[in-house]
Write a protein that binds this DNA or RNA. Structure first.
Lengths: 309, 309
DNA sequence: GATGCTTACGATACCCGTAAAGATA
DNA sequence: TATCTTTACGGGTATCGTAAGCATC
């Protein structure tokens, strides 16, 4: 048993049991992949993968049991390397943030520029993805920190910290009839076509929920991943936009206006999430602190690393 | 970085930084040990060990941080092998129980013979040790299951299940004056020399506590690890014995008699402990179930393996 | 026929042990 | 001086890639 074999096992499960892909992903020859799998299976005395002829189809029962242990082991190996770098090059390295478009474009932009000034030697990677993909990236170790509004808090392998709370805002073009109402209700809004986020995003579920509770079926004519896309189509007069308020800036979005009145949608909490037991470099903790000053100090570190062992 | 290097790091910390001992323990040459340590330090780019000249003295700060991760990683490697054996040879393997003399001799003797009948192919190893050493063996992976009355429950890396509750019994030779009292008190007993367990053992702390609360300083003339030793000296008239009631059998200990009356000492709980995240073979769980039938099923397994990751 | 996995074979790198030399107590 | 660690060197093995062969789709 060696690390390479375990890496191959993990990658095989991730790459849908296509050994050629595994070989490419790990920059090794495909024959080596085959042999390593066979060797490890021989050593353990059991089959990890279900085969039909020469093709691999999936994990066997023992394979399913073993995989989580293999993943934890490899994660610890990566932690060891991270920890070493942490001591040798305190302010150098890589920090991968996975987040949604809206956060990347609006909420964390200033924080990122501040972070880059503070840590010029850190390679900062910001990957945009939907909340599910963000969670996957955190779990696989591709990303260090995830920021999103939905679902991250529900994954048990992740630790989520509250970042900020917000409610959806409603934006319309100038002169829109809704602007004449002092306190527009959901029913008023639903009289127009709706443009808002895609199902997997930014608290879209909360929007749906509010309409469902009011017994209204809104006419959502366009769902987008991206606040800018939404605003653009609202500008074009295609409908009423329901967006995150951080994506609306009266000075820049001169063709749009935000509706006033009482809150119509439930509150959302955007969270910062890290995989449990993931070793974050000190600048990673600093990034979290830049996001939310109250998330400073050892409490965050303890929450991430405390694994009861 | 490879497994051998990590094993060497772990063993070096365990063997007091004597590389010759490490080499012997791992059945490799000490030049190999030296080289592996140096290679790993070079790869990580930092020193793991404090050196004076050529001698190793201890762990550096990074070394101290890394060691727990290394230990968890190696533990997972062993879990992988255990898990594989679990699937290939369900009823074969090794089960190491670390326990105190009293438990081994009295409480679990029948359970052990039943276990051996049930799993004739399992090599059962019972190691006697004091509670602290039992905890160490569980943590190092030398033992799978630990049974003791003290301290195991206080180690956070261990999961402890209640086995049974008991109070110390007082034994004296036939015709002893204490037998004449209907309900002897602590002060009556303390009038005689006391023979009981050694400090680290079998709830001795509770005995001390009872006397302390009563404001009495007992004259403990003999402390033993072993209930049989205590009983022998009580038989010889050297004093009053305070032992675990499971060690007293009226039919066999014909020269001794147990004092009646109200309980004088606080209750003890003997526990069964396993290291958190340790992979127990199915017959290991069966052993626990034999000890305490209420500790059956998946709850025990979940408590051991649930590590929040 | 295209894709995917295995086997065969040779080069390289790595791991290990012996032996000698150097440090430390 | 005895114990302990490092360095040097050589043999054996493991690992890897190329290339050919063989299933599977």
């Amino acid at each position: 048993m060696n690390f390479q074999q375990l890496r191959i096992i993990r990658e095989t499960a991730r790459r849908d049991f296509n050994l050629t892909e595994v070989a490419n992903a790990l920059y090794i020859s495909q024959s080596g992949v085959s042999k390593h799998i066979r060797d490890l299976e021989d050593e353990l005395g059991l089959q990890l993968f279900v085969r039909r002829g020469k093709r691999l189809l999936g994990l066997t029962e023992p394979g399913r049991e073993l995989l989580p242990v293999v993943e934890r082991l490899l994660h610890d190996a990566s932690n060891i390397r991270q920890l070493a770098e942490h001591f040798t090059r305190k302010d150098e390295g890589r920090l991968a943030i996975a987040t949604t478009h809206t956060q990347a474009r609006y909420r964390i932009a200033d924080l990122v520029s501040q972070f880059v000034r503070e840590f010029p030697k850190v390679r900062l990677e910001i990957v945009e993805a939907n909340p599910q993909a963000i969670a996957d990236r955190l779990l696989s170790g591709e990303a260090d920190i995830g920021i999103a509004t939905e679902s991250l808090g529900e994954v048990p392998e992740l630790v989520a910290f509250p970042f900020y709370r917000w409610r959806h805002a409603i934006v319309v073009p100038h002169g829109h009839p809704l602007l004449a109402l002092p306190a527009p209700a959901l029913a008023d809004i639903a009289a127009y076509p709706i443009i808002t986020y895609h199902e997997a995003f930014a608290g879209r579920r909360r929007v749906n929920e509010a309409f469902r509770l009011a017994g209204i079926v809104p006419n959502v004519i366009l769902s987008a991943v991206d606040s800018d896309v939404i605003k653009r189509y609202v500008e074009l007069g295609l409908g009423v936009g329901i967006v995150s308020p951080i994506a609306f800036d009266p000075r820049r979005d001169t063709q749009l206006q935000q509706l006033g009145g009482t809150p119509l949608f439930p509150e959302n909490t955007t969270v910062i999430a890290v995989r449990r037991g993931h070793f974050l470099r000190s600048f990673g903790y600093r990034f979290i602190e830049l996001c939310a000053p109250e998330l400073a100090g050892d409490a965050v570190r303890a929450a991430i690393l405390d694994d009861d062992r």
